[in-house]
Design a protein around this nucleic acid. Structure first.
Length: 761
DNA sequence: AAAAAAC
């Protein structure tokens, strides 16, 4: 109870208290003054912190300081301030913000990253191997050259608060308002251009499986048998005017196609799998059963009913057994995937049959390979089939517009036949790293199509001919509209983090994109938190989808240890610093970009090397900063939820949620950045006192059982939590599923039961 | 409310 005393006049800053922002009247007025920040960057921060924190907590950032100091600006800054510009920028800039003229300012701000000692180290290296190829490409490298100048500018100045010293005014003038960001980006973007290196630098492999978020236990499949699902057949009709492609045959009604390779499937004849194929969609839960769960489960109920696959049932199965060809199997082994994980064993055969699939598997369960490998296999088989019946009527149709010979693997300008959509650029990049080698092994090409980088290279790749496009919605739609990307031949569309892709802001673009793909094409939706939120897409585009998940994947079987610390918001930054001052990779989550920046600066001030990752950074910096954590050059990454899903970095053993998430799904995804591959992981969530109830509710939905602990700066518990987490449960990574299944948990029981039923059905 | 996603 002691803690939260409110600072002066009002209550302490809470998670969001816009009103509070005005606390100008508060005792802290002085601290807020720009002086604290700007005057002495190094020492001032501490003092000022209080105010600043509040501001940040409030989601506003430095702004206030400005306000107080100069009331005039405030208003403007705020307005402009919208999402357009980074809040921290705003702080500096007063109203002037609106002038877009000075993009540079912003630029500088980010340059800060560069200033950091370690950063600089990197940069200079552009010459370094990693980046070298950049140059090769569009000369992306150059960008760096340009930047340097800015950085120097910055160097002179201290961090953002330094600006405080300076006359705000001109600063602002210089900087553009919301446009700043855009400008910035653009300028840098160009620099970044060569993105290709992304791919190059990364190691290929293992992460494939890790990308996903954990979570699970949704095993409550029960009623999938109902045939209540709406028929979608007409959907296709209205949706597109495209002629049905040969792929249409894949549908259940059709007999097995040549490339279906029935034989292979057979090898994998676990009863469950095959039956599932025949049964009606399992997407819609039985009406009657809906309410049978406790009220608490309401939200959770939103999860799709799925057929749970027992982990042990997949033992002894090989990728070849699942129907994948030799080259692909070999490549998977090279990637570190020797034998299929449960989710892979469950979905690969079904995907190969041409069915629409909804797959849910927790973090690191191997979802990327689960959809990537069979997608490549299908394209390859399709290619082979066409070659076989050269001149086939259907083939002609599907290759219309392309050179007549589909035989040639790399047909110039051939339109892509598969599309993989991801919510963030980093994830798209990561997926490509896994899929590209698989595709390459059978002579197929992939390309990344996402924003933040020049489109030239992407367009060039498309012109050369690509088989699989992997990217984010924005740029893909952009290129489609420009007529540079033809999706009409896409017969396999994959949505990674599908539930997130159905969130506001993403859904419509995604729908528009899918409508551009071949009518009746196969659709694969994957996510660790797949729920009925994907109904909008399922109803419009999927036909009799098979829904799979792995039984026993619940929190109880997780290797992640959870802690919730109830703190005084004023101590938040220092507590984060205390926790992050450790050996081992640490990922810190912030609710806003501004706070991510602020925390990064704070950590640096505390002598902890850290880099930030959020949407206000240009892509080159985003990629570089993430790379720094991956490479171990820096141990702390402060990110917004841009890094919450899918991103895999080996060995992150501590995740700190400086700001608690609003959604249980977000919690699970963020937490899933650690404890991967059966390794020990720890998640520490900081919450203000007034958030306890909400947090408890959220954890309940996530099915995570944790006790809250009151913690103040200096508490020895912080040091303990900073230690490397010990391997949680004795269970090895593979064992968990099995164990869980055996466990007495009701959830586990449900899945198995269900599992059995469906088959009989 | 925020973040992400195109230029």
């Amino acid at each position: 109870m002691p803690k939260n005393k409110k600072p002066a006049g009002g209550r302490p800053a809470r998670d969001f208290d816009p009103a509070r922002g005005k606390r100008s009247g508060g005792a802290k007025a002085g601290s807020r003054s720009p002086g604290h920040r700007g005057y002495r960057p190094d020492e001032a921060p501490k003092k000022a912190r209080w105010t600043r924190d509040e501001r940040l907590d409030a989601g506003r950032s430095p702004h206030r300081a400005d306000r107080e100091g100069r009331g005039e600006r405030m208003p403007e800054g705020r307005r402009t301030g919208g999402s357009a510009r980074p809040s921290y920028d705003r702080a500096d800039r007063p109203s002037g913000g609106r002038d877009a003229r000075d993009g540079q300012r912003d630029g500088r701000r980010f340059d800060r990253d560069e200033r950091r000692p370690y950063d600089r180290g990197d940069r200079p290296d552009r010459s370094r191997g990693d980046r070298s190829f950049d140059g090769a490409r569009d000369g992306g490298r150059r960008s760096f050259d340009d930047r340097p100048r800015r950085s120097s500018d910055r160097d002179d100045r201290a961090r953002s608060y330094d600006r405080g010293d300076r006359p705000n005014r001109f600063d602002r003038d210089d900087r553009p308002g919301r446009f700043d960001r855009d400008d910035r980006r653009r300028s840098y973007d160009r620099d970044d251009r060569p993105r290709s290196y992304d791919r190059d630098d990364r190691p290929r492999r293992s992460f494939d499986r890790d990308d996903r978020a954990p979570r699970t236990r949704d095993e409550r499949p029960r009623s999938y048998d109902r045939g209540d699902r709406p028929q979608r057949s007409f959907d296709r009709t209205d949706r597109t005017d495209r002629p049905a492609r040969s792929f249409d045959r894949d549908r259940a009604d059709r007999p097995q196609r040549g490339f279906d390779r029935d034989d292979r499937r057979r090898s994998f004849d676990r009863p469950g799998f095959r039956d599932s194929e025949r049964r009606p969609s399992s997407y819609y839960p039985a009406k009657g059963e809906q309410r049978s769960f406790g009220p608490e489960d309401d939200v959770v109920l939103e999860r799709l009913e799925a057929q749970a696959v027992q982990a042990d049932a997949t033992e002894g199965t090989s990728f070849a057994d699942l129907g994948l060809g030799q080259n692909i199997v070999r490549t998977l082994a090279e990637l570190g995937a020797e034998s299929p994980f449960p989710i892979q064993a469950a979905t690969i055969p079904v995907v190969l049959e041409g069915r629409d699939v909804l797959g849910r598997g927790r973090t690191g369960s191997g979802k990327t390979i689960a959809f990537g490998a069979p997608t490549v296999e299908r394209l390859m088989q399709d290619w082979a089939a066409r070659q076989r019946d050269a001149g086939g009527e259907r083939d002609a149709a599907s290759t219309a517009g392309l050179g007549k010979n589909a035989r040639k693997r790399r047909e110039m300008g051939r339109a892509p036949r598969a599309l993989i959509l991801a919510p963030t650029r980093e994830l798209a990049l990561q997926i490509d790293r896994t899929v590209q080698p698989i595709a390459q092994s059978v002579g197929l090409f992939t390309t990344q199509i996402y924003g933040g980088v020049p489109q030239g290279r992407q367009v060039g790749a498309l012109q050369r001919g690509v088989d699989i496009v992997i990217g984010t919605p924005g740029r893909i739609e952009d290129l489609v509209e420009q007529g540079r990307l033809d999706l009409s031949q896409v017969r396999i569309t994959v949505l990674d983090e599908a539930d997130h892709m159905c969130d506001l802001g993403f859904l419509e673009p995604v729908q528009r994109i899918i409508r551009r793909t071949a009518d009746g094409g196969q659709k694969l939706l994957f996510s660790a938190t797949l729920d009925t939120g994907v109904a909008a897409l399922v109803d419009e585009f999927l036909v009799d989808p098979a829904v799979y998940e792995v039984a026993g994947e619940d929190q109880a079987s997780s290797t992640i240890e959870h802690h919730v610390l109830v703190i005084d918001n004023r101590e938040k930054r220092d507590i984060v610093a205390a926790l992050a001052d450790r050996d081992g990779k640490t990922l810190v989550f912030s609710r806003t970009r501004a706070f991510a920046e602020d925390l990064t600066d704070h950590l640096e001030d505390a002598g902890i090397a850290a880099v930030a990752l959020h949407g206000d950074l240009n892509q080159s910096r985003r990629t570089r900063n993430l790379q720094q954590l991956t490479s171990g050059r820096v141990d702390v990454l402060v990110a917004t939820d841009v890094a919450a899903r899918g991103i895999h970095v080996d060995d992150i053993d501590l995740v700190i949620q400086a700001d608690a998430p609003d959604e249980y799904k977000t919690y699970l995804h963020r937490a899933g950045r650690t404890g991967r591959a059966g390794k020990a992981g720890r998640v520490v969530t900081l919450i203000p006192r007034n958030r306890q109830r909400r947090m408890a509710e959220l954890l309940g939905r996530a099915e995570i059982d944790v006790d809250f602990e009151d913690v103040y700066l200096g508490d020895p518990l912080l040091a303990e939590l900073a230690e490397a987490p010990l391997a949680p449960s004795p269970e090895p990574e593979t064992a968990p599923e099995v164990d869980a299944a055996d466990a007495p948990d009701p959830e586990d029981a449900a899945p198995s039961a269900v599992d059995a039923e469906p088959r009989s059905a």
